[in-house]
């Protein structure tokens, strides 16, 4: 990949993560498998994949909330992988995370006002008075009533809790935000509200966002660019429209057909995949259930390559390699 030193946006190369197995004589589980990712500054990257495909691992790895086995992460020209503990903690105000379950991610013993102000207090942003003003602004920003500040998380509704989480994440004005399944724990009408809120906030504040979901409809609604994740790898990356109009990878195709078949919600169906991958070390990871599998797929590993420069479109499949 290119020199990311003074570029903006998020650049990650060669991310590797093996989760050590709990039991003995069981294979380590693959979290990330030599994964590359670029998110242009100010854009939303929608990451879609089945549960267990490594989406959350990727989120945690980009923020260095877990230890990577290998790989580099650059955010707005800052080499995250090279920071020391202190530098990393300091950097955290610029990269933030929203969780799937806001109730679990908020300390039950802190009022929501305190929760939102915590990052500002920690990073010494402004004076106490300025911070109180800031709190007011943040409540307005995420559409919460100011009076809720002294409440405790369990006293709020799920939608309100997620708004608090968003306000907390945005309090320190991060340039990069990861939203890990931020709406999947919410009721459908609330989902739409939160999605709209996130999209509006991004337009207003201009941060770069990685949006993770297993729901294709949600991804289609919010993402500029989409990546399809499978077993620790990105199999296809393309602009939103391009991916839905011209899916190239066999896995993406099957996702879209599955979603099309069930009209209601285009939820990625946790298929039979996983574990029992018993082909050789140099094979396509999807070969065991690929409908278009070829003989060479079992002993050649495809690499992610451009099939189209504009709009950009990458695919990791031997059908597109020559």
């Amino acid at each position: 990949m290119n020199q990311p030193n003074n570029s903006t946006g998020v650049h990650a190369t060669g991310l590797m993560k093996l989760w050590p197995s709990q039991k003995k004589n069981q294979q380590d589980r693959v979290g990330l498998n030599n994964l590359d990712l670029i998110i242009p500054a100010g854009k939303t990257f929608g990451l879609v994949g089945e549960s267990g495909s490594g989406k959350s691992t990727l989120a945690l790895a980009l923020l260095r909330l877990i230890k990577l086995d290998a790989g580099e992460v650059w955010i707005d020209g800052q080499a995250i992988h090279a920071l020391d503990e202190k530098g990393l903690r300091n950097q955290r105000q610029h990269m933030q995370l929203i969780f799937q379950n806001p109730l679990a991610a908020l300390d039950p013993r802190h009022s929501v006002g305190d929760a939102i102000l915590e990052p500002l207090v920690l990073h010494n942003v402004g004076t106490a008075i300025q911070r109180r003003q800031q709190l007011q602004n943040l409540f307005e920003l995420v559409g919460l009533g100011r009076t809720l500040a002294s409440r405790y998380p369990h006293q709020l509704s799920g939608g309100q809790q997620q708004r608090v989480m968003i306000a907390r994440a945005l309090a320190s004005r991060p340039s990069f935000l990861i939203a890990d399944e931020p709406v999947s724990a919410l009721d459908a009408p609330i989902q739409a509200q939160i999605l709209n809120l996130l999209r509006d906030l991004q337009t207003e504040l201009g941060f770069t966002m990685l949006f993770i979901s297993h729901d294709l409809a949600v991804i289609q609604f919010i993402a500029d660019r989409i990546g399809v994740m499978y077993h620790g790898q990105l199999l296809e990356q393309a602009e939103n429209n391009e991916l839905f109009s011209n899916p190239c990878h066999p896995y993406t195709e099957s996702l879209l057909t599955a979603a099309g078949a069930s009209h209601q919600s285009a939820v990625v169906n946790p298929g039979k995949q996983q574990q029992e991958i018993n082909q050789g070390p140099n094979s396509c990871i999807y070969a065991h259930s690929c409908p278009r599998v070829m003989q060479k797929c079992r002993h050649h590993e495809p690499s992610l390559r451009y099939i189209n420069k504009s709009p950009p479109h990458w695919v990791k499949c031997l059908h597109y390699e020559n």
Binding site: L63, L65, L88, R89, N90, Q91, R92, Q93, Q96, L97, F99, N101, A104, A105, L106, D107, P108, R109, H110, E118, P119, L122, H123, R168, S172
Partner: peptide, 24 residues
């Protein structure tokens, strides 16, 4: 998750212990 969330905003282990784990 709220301990992970504390780490995500850059809280040090010592502060995480005193302001999140201890009260709980």
């Amino acid at each position: 998750d709220f301990i992970l969330a504390a780490r995500a905003i850059g809280l040090s282990p010592a502060k995480t212990l005193t302001s999140h784990i201890l009260p709980n």
